[in-house]
Amino acid sequence: GSPGIQSFLPPGWEMRIAPNGRPFFIDHNTKTTTWEDPRLK
């Protein structure tokens, strides 16, 4: 199987799917959430 997208996120980050189907990202380091992919910064 191919590695999940989770493995490509920075340490402490998690990806979830919102009720509307959009992915969002949780930064457990700062306890914040964002719509922006942290890998694109």
Results as ranks from 00 to 15, higher is better:
residue 27 D to F: 04
residue 35 W to F: 10
residue 3 P to G: 12
residue 41 K to N: 13
residue 12 G to Y: 04
residue 18 A to V: 03
residue 20 N to Q: 02
residue 15 M to S: 04
residue 31 K to N: 15
residue 39 R to S: 07
residue 3 P to Y: 06
residue 41 K to H: 14
residue 30 T to N: 10
residue 34 T to F: 07
residue 40 L to G: 12
residue 11 P to S: 08
residue 23 P to N: 08
residue 38 P to G: 01
residue 1 G to R: 10
residue 11 P to L: 08
residue 29 N to L: 10
residue 13 W to Q: 00
residue 30 T to Y: 04
residue 35 W to S: 06
residue 27 D to Y: 04
residue 33 T to N: 07
residue 24 F to S: 07
residue 30 T to R: 07
residue 2 S to R: 13
residue 29 N to E: 07
residue 20 N to C: 12
residue 7 S to I: 12
residue 31 K to Q: 13
residue 5 I to N: 14
residue 27 D to H: 07
residue 18 A to C: 15
residue 40 L to R: 07
residue 28 H to G: 06
residue 27 D to T: 00
residue 5 I to K: 14
residue 35 W to T: 06
residue 19 P to H: 09
residue 37 D to E: 05
residue 15 M to A: 06
residue 2 S to N: 14
residue 4 G to S: 10
residue 33 T to H: 09
residue 15 M to C: 14
residue 34 T to Y: 08
residue 23 P to R: 10
residue 13 W to N: 00
residue 14 E to F: 03
residue 5 I to W: 11
residue 37 D to G: 01
residue 16 R to L: 10
residue 11 P to K: 08
residue 18 A to S: 10
residue 4 G to C: 15
residue 17 I to S: 05
residue 14 E to S: 07
residue 37 D to R: 02
residue 16 R to P: 00
residue 3 P to M: 12
residue 24 F to H: 08
residue 11 P to Q: 08
residue 33 T to V: 15
residue 41 K to A: 15
residue 7 S to L: 10
residue 7 S to H: 12
residue 6 Q to W: 00
residue 40 L to E: 14
residue 14 E to W: 01
residue 35 W to G: 03
residue 16 R to I: 12
residue 32 T to F: 09
residue 26 I to A: 02
residue 7 S to N: 15
residue 30 T to Q: 07
residue 13 W to D: 00
residue 9 L to K: 01
residue 18 A to D: 12
residue 16 R to N: 05
residue 9 L to Q: 01
residue 15 M to I: 09
residue 11 P to Y: 08
residue 15 M to P: 00
residue 37 D to P: 09
residue 21 G to Q: 03
residue 40 L to I: 11
residue 1 G to L: 11
residue 36 E to R: 10
residue 39 R to C: 08
residue 22 R to S: 08
residue 2 S to G: 14
residue 6 Q to D: 15
residue 21 G to H: 05
residue 1 G to T: 14
residue 1 G to D: 13
residue 5 I to G: 13
residue 27 D to R: 00
residue 12 G to A: 03
residue 8 F to Y: 13
residue 2 S to Q: 13
residue 18 A to L: 09
residue 30 T to C: 09
residue 5 I to C: 15
residue 41 K to W: 11
residue 40 L to M: 11
residue 11 P to C: 15
residue 12 G to L: 04
residue 38 P to K: 00
residue 13 W to S: 00
residue 20 N to W: 04
residue 27 D to P: 00
residue 25 F to W: 13
residue 22 R to P: 07
residue 26 I to W: 05
residue 39 R to G: 06
residue 14 E to N: 02
residue 19 P to K: 13
residue 35 W to Y: 09
residue 29 N to R: 07
residue 17 I to Y: 13
residue 2 S to H: 12
residue 18 A to H: 09
residue 28 H to E: 06
